[in-house]
Amino acid sequence: MNAHDRYDELAVGHALDALEPSDEAEFLAHLPTCAACQTAVSAHRDTLGHFAYAVESVDPPASVLEGIRAGIGASAFPAPVASLADRRSRTVKMRTAMVGVAASVVLVAALAIGLVSATTRNSELKQRDLAFSRAVSSLLTTGAQRVELSPAAGPGKVVAVVHGGQVDLVMSGVPRNANDSTYVLWQQAAGQVSAAGVFDVRSTDLTVVSTGLHVAGADLQQLMITRESGRTAPPSARGAVLYTGTA
């Protein structure tokens, strides 16, 4: 068994969503650095995609499309809230609409009332806070854990929503990183610190990072964010801890 064989096995497990959290974290740390594994995962996903056609084919009920339409409609509100946020935050509100058409209609009404109220107060700061709170709320599904990351050496605010080993980060006022650097989310679990994933910040407005960040669910103790040189996470943090929070 050569050194890379282990990653060949992990690539299959990753594509199947069947890895244990520790293996998943190890593989996700390796994946950005390995073209062979990226190719393998893509090939495995193509193969597994065919599985979807091996099952009984059933049309979804009309309510699914209606719910999606309602979700799109809920995001169709223009300024002022939408103008404050980047494209991700605009659509974060949609997650709330996933609970169904009725809930989506309520959301639309709430958004409309919120917008009128905010415009009346003409308070951009309050609108920002409102949009931030809504973004966090929309991610707090059943069983999700909210982790507030306090600024240690960075401006703005960051909240992590941990659900099923995945992390969504809601940020506002966090500086953009240069193209030759990256932010790294670190996790401390069972006394060990490891990279949970890397991400870019392209806007100081409300930003949500909702992909590529994975942590060890139940054992999670602390989350930290650093900014590092290069495009991948180093073996251990080299940059200053910018934000930190206890799970």
Binding site: G71, S75, R87, R95
Partner: peptide, 19 residues
């Protein structure tokens, strides 16, 4: 479970819309 499956599909397409 059909209801959960509907929720998942809705979430998938709204995630696609979002990002």
């Amino acid at each position: 479970d059909e209801q959960l499956a509907q929720d998942v599909v809705q979430e998938v397409f709204l995630t696609l819309w979002r990002d």
